[in-house]
């Protein structure tokens, strides 16, 4: 090999044998298999067979429609009430009864869906996307990038949730001010994101760390996959399950957190409606009109359950071994 007189021609590459890849005559078996089914199609085919998926999807659809078009579910104005009728039990006119101001509890529960659903879904999406992205970057790149991002996450993680949320909301939404409902919803969602992303970042980071060493990542590198493709095809799909489970639980806890902040007077304020506000208002009248607390709470629990069930069925469908 060190002989200077050696012929430096490129190594002869004998053609691929007949029947090999390059023969045009190879019979085409394609038509019978039809159009190739993508990965999402596989997951969808699996989801379609799960009753749990259909039930939760139906419930979530109902809640989403309720949030977007509450007037489809009731023709009663949720803000109108007669003090004469206050604290009535359920009746033909007011199915769930009436609150302290004589307003219809059913209508208020329907209209309350919007704030709860919008805030929790947006905050969850943001938390999972931000935390997940930072987690992937931190886990995959490692080194000083990981060190820096993890320390920043630690700082945010160290903030007590309520104190942090109070601080943010008290600054931007002080009691006595009357910003628009949309602005408050956005503020609440942002403060939930800011204070919660470190948890999803840590979940993603540890999932990435365990997947990063897997043989199939090394094999993908050995076959010449680009770093971007390795992250997209091999790292993220194998880390999704734990994030998904966490995010469905997060939706539930965010609905609760939104209610808590409303109760403390820094979130949405009456006359705005949310399940959280209603539950808090109703506490003192639990014995007079149990429905005032019970119905919004039942909606809240059902919504949380629907999201958890949806997450669970998607997680199962994503894992080929459970099929």
């Amino acid at each position: 090999m060190s002989d200077p007189g050696e012929n430096v021609e490129a190594a002869v590459r004998p053609g691929v044998a007949p029947g090999g890849l390059h023969t045009a005559e190879t019979p085409v078996p394609a038509p019978a298999t039809g159009k190739p089914r993508g990965q999402f199609a596989d997951v969808w085919a699996e989801l379609r067979r799960k009753p749990m998926f259909w039930i939760s999807a139906f419930l979530i659809l109902v809640f989403l429609v309720m949030a977007a078009f509450p007037s489809l579910f009731t023709s009663i104005d949720p803000d109108q009430g007669s003090l004469r009728d206050n604290l009535q039990g359920p009746s033909k006119d007011a199915w769930f009864g009436r609150d302290i101001q004589g307003r219809d509890i059913y209508a208020r529960t329907i209209y309350g869906a919007q704030a709860s659903i919008v805030v929790s879904v947006i905050a969850t999406l943001g938390t999972v996307l931000i935390g997940g992205f930072i987690g992937v970057v931190s886990g995959y790149i490692g080194g000083w990038v990981d060190g820096l991002l993890s320390r920043i996450a630690d700082v945010f993680f160290g903030l007590p949730f309520l104190l942090g949320a109070l601080l943010i909301l008290f600054t931007f939404n002080p009691p006595g001010s009357a910003p628009s409902k949309l602005k408050v919803e956005a503020l609440v969602a942002v403060s939930l994101m800011v204070l919660s992303w470190p948890v999803s970042m840590r979940i993603m980071r540890s999932a990435v760390l365990s997947v990063k060493e897997a043989d199939y990542i090394v094999a993908a590198r050995a076959l010449g996959a680009s770093p971007f493709r390795i992250v997209l095809r091999h790292v993220i799909p194998n880390c999704l399950a734990s994030m998904l489970v966490y995010s469905t639980i997060l939706i539930g806890s965010f609905i609760g957190a939104e209610a808590t902040l409303s109760y403390l007077g820094v979130g949405l304020k009456s006359p705005a409606m949310s399940w959280g506000i209603m539950i808090n208002e109703a506490q003192q009248f639990l014995r007079d009109v149990p429905g005032w607390l019970f119905f919004p709470a039942a909606f809240l629990v059902t919504a949380v359950l629907a999201f958890v069930m949806l997450g669970e069925s998607i997680r199962e469908a994503l894992d080929p071994k459970l099929r």
Binding site: Q39, D215, A219, A220, A222, G224
Partner: peptide, 20 residues
Amino acid sequence: RGEGIAMVFQDALSALNPTF
């Protein structure tokens, strides 16, 4: 890699991506 030189690994189960 892949086009010029490729590699077969010892344990095929762990060297194939389980999600696809």
